[in-house]
């Protein structure tokens, strides 16, 4: 009994030390992250839509305005397709290249570095470079004209498979594909590195066992290796989703809002409406919606991880 109490005390003093070390960062995060999230939420329910602060309660009016707004509806559509294409391409390319690199052990570090290098750049640089590469009158189109095709890239205003939905035409905006290409170019290296690490983690015995059981090389990958990559795929999806849902700098530097808002995203809208139009409450509402969108991905992940802990 006495021993028990002693042990309990020791654990709690450990915790005190841990708390003491964590306290400064917890405090700073509490104020500068959660405090300001709370503040942003508060502003989003106010009438502060001019330079003069006005904190009178506006109910949901800022949110209702946004959901009826052409530009915001277009933003949600663009974000949806950007996220789908971006994550899909990053996973397929990342895993595919990782498998190819892993098979050819000699060049591994060279290839890994080549593919990782774009990650060293900021999205702004990527945006500026790809703005010229995918510009319909400079860049790739000089080569493509030999093949007789002249895609309009990010200036294309067509919506594929479009139908009228709310204020907008819902469908796949062709222009967003140009932005996806730039983002994939930059982020594939990241998922590649993660998948490479994951492939390293699979014991050779497992593959050997599969081979002994008569599995072809293809089957080894399809039935053994790739299923074991599942946890990594989950991590890649989470990380890429939180990048793509909040994307701002790439779009801002590369295309801007685009004609008819075909490449606009909530981050750009929030920046312009807040700092150009002085619609602070509307900008705050956009920020809160973006936070909720990211939370849709993050919260189940945390839940899943917590279960794993237990």
């Amino acid at each position: 009994m006495a021993e028990n109490i002693k042990r309990k005390k020791r654990i709690s003093s450990d915790q005190w030390v841990a708390l003491a070390f964590l306290a400064p960062s917890i405090l700073l995060i509490a104020v500068f992250v959660y405090g300001f999230i709370g503040w942003t939420g508060y502003v989003s329910f106010s009438n502060w839509n001019t330079l003069t602060p006005d904190f009178s309660f506006a109910g949901l009016s800022n949110y209702l305005y946004l959901f009826s707004d052409f530009r915001f509806q277009a933003d949600l559509r663009n974000t949806l397709f950007f996220t789908l294409f971006f994550i899909g391409a990053v996973i397929i390319l990342g895993l595919g290249i990782a498998i190819l690199i892993e098979k050819n052990l000699k060049g591994e570090s060279l290839f890994r570095n080549i593919f990782l290098f774009p990650m060293a750049l900021s999205f702004v640089v990527t945006g500026v470079v790809w703005q010229w590469l995918l510009n319909p009158s400079t860049g790739f189109n000089h080569f493509l004209k030999w093949f007789g095709i002249q895609p309009l890239w990010y200036t294309d205003t067509n919506i594929l498979a479009g139908f009228q939905w709310g204020a907008i035409e819902f469908g796949v905006p062709v222009a967003i594909i140009a932005v996806v290409i730039a983002a994939v170019w930059q982020m594939t290296g990241f998922s590649l590195a993660m998948y490479l690490a994951g492939l390293r983690g699979i014991p050779d015995e497992l593959r050997e066992a599969a081979r002994v059981d008569g599995a072809s090389e293809r089957q080894v990958y399809r039935k053994v290796v790739i299923p074991m990559m599942m946890p990594i795929t989950v991590s890649v999806v989470i990380i890429m989703a939180h990048i793509s849902l909040k994307i701002f700098d790439l779009v801002y530097a590369m295309t801007g809002s685009g004609a008819n808002f075909v490449t606009d995203v909530p981050g750009v809208y929030m920046f312009e409406t807040t700092f150009r139009g002085n619609y602070y409450a509307q900008g705050a509402a956009i920020a809160i919606i973006m936070l909720l969108l990211v939370a849709i991905f993050i919260v189940p992940y945390l839940w899943y991880n917590r279960k794993g802990d237990n």
């Binding site: 942003t40 999205f123 701002f248 700098d249």
Partner: peptide, 28 residues
Amino acid sequence: MLIFVLAMVACGADDSDEEQFDGNDSGE
């Protein structure tokens, strides 16, 4: 961990995303 992950989400992977939460910065 929750604090860490949410902080990561909130601060963003890139600096220029910050203004959405503190509402004061001027972008790049």
